[in-house]
Amino acid sequence: MKIAFIGLGNMGGGMAANLVKAGHDVQAFDLSEEALARAGENGCATFSTVPEAVAGVDAVVTMLPNGGIVKSVYTSDVFSRAPAGALFLDCSTIDVDTAREVEKLAREAGYEMVDAPVSGGIAAANGGTLTFMVGGTEAAFAKAQTVLEPMAKKVIHAGAIGAGQVAKMCNNMLLAIHMIGTCEALKLAEKAGLDPQMFYEISSNATGYNWSLNDYTPAAGVGVTSPADNDYAGGFASALMLKDLRLAMQGAESAGATVPMGEHAMKIYEAFCEAGGGGKDFGAIFTTL
């Protein structure tokens, strides 16, 4: 297939490279010259504008910072230039309402579209082991699988359009809550006189088991190797976690849901980012306790 890939940041660059490895022709665009150069080194054809990148393609994949940019890119540059019959896959993490609005506009313009946010982080993007949560019709999902599978360990049809974004906001709200709780438990164990590694050995094999503890331990020198062992560099930035928590709070308000733990987690990450920690991995909350 010929696939346009718009947005080659920390996640998108690896994703586009995996599409090339799977034998697809990838036409790439990003505002960053450095990102475009890397994409070219990875086998993508690179373009200086979105309209050029989407010309003649079978599918368009977007990986962009927020809903406003997603809507602008599609309405300004993609709808008017992509061929009839092209499939659109937005892999950005954005608010549910915008995801549904852009799909409606795409449908009115004669295109099929899915929202397909991802979980797994930079390592999974580079390794082709992301989990995709896909919202859209059965027909659109069936077509999207061909595009998504080279980048994925799992592609899940979450439901109608917007369901992918609902799944992503709920998943990341839960992840933030788990991470804060894991950090608190590790620090409490240490302060109460229990070796943190011993606590890890016990809780990782007991009912305290969770991904933040077992697979992404936020204390340096404890458990598995993680960004904590690199001064919290790399990984999933706290500023991005805060963005996702704000999306979850927006979604909760729209749905009339009560999420007190999620709201408290957002406040903790807000304070951490305001204190200058936004570029640190989200496990760096451990350093504040």
Rank of each mutant, 00 (worst) to 15 (best):
E33A: 14
H157C: 08
R81N: 14
G120V: 02
K21A: 15
V134P: 01
G67K: 05
G13Y: 00
T93K: 04
D90F: 09
P65R: 00
V73N: 07
G262E: 08
G159W: 03
A239H: 10
V78L: 04
A237W: 02
L242G: 08
A28S: 10
A163E: 05
L188S: 08
G164M: 12
A176G: 10
E190I: 03
V224N: 12
F47Y: 15
A124R: 13
A39Q: 02
A239E: 13
R107M: 00
D231N: 15
D195T: 08
M151L: 13
T225N: 10
W211D: 12
V114A: 11
F141C: 04
L213Y: 11
G135K: 12
S226H: 05
G164K: 00
L87H: 03
I122R: 14
A109R: 15
E112C: 01
L186G: 11
R38C: 09
Y74C: 14
M151Q: 15
T98S: 06
G7R: 05
A16C: 11
M1D: 05
M63W: 09
M151Y: 05
G276P: 09
A22Y: 07
N66I: 00
T46F: 07
F141N: 10
M15V: 06
G159I: 03
G40F: 13
A275N: 08
A59H: 05
E34I: 06
I161T: 15
D77T: 04
M198G: 11
A189E: 03
N18F: 12
M63T: 01
F79D: 03
M173Y: 06
L130G: 12
G277T: 10
A160L: 05
N66L: 00
F5I: 05
A160T: 06
L31H: 12
A99R: 10
V20M: 08
N171K: 03
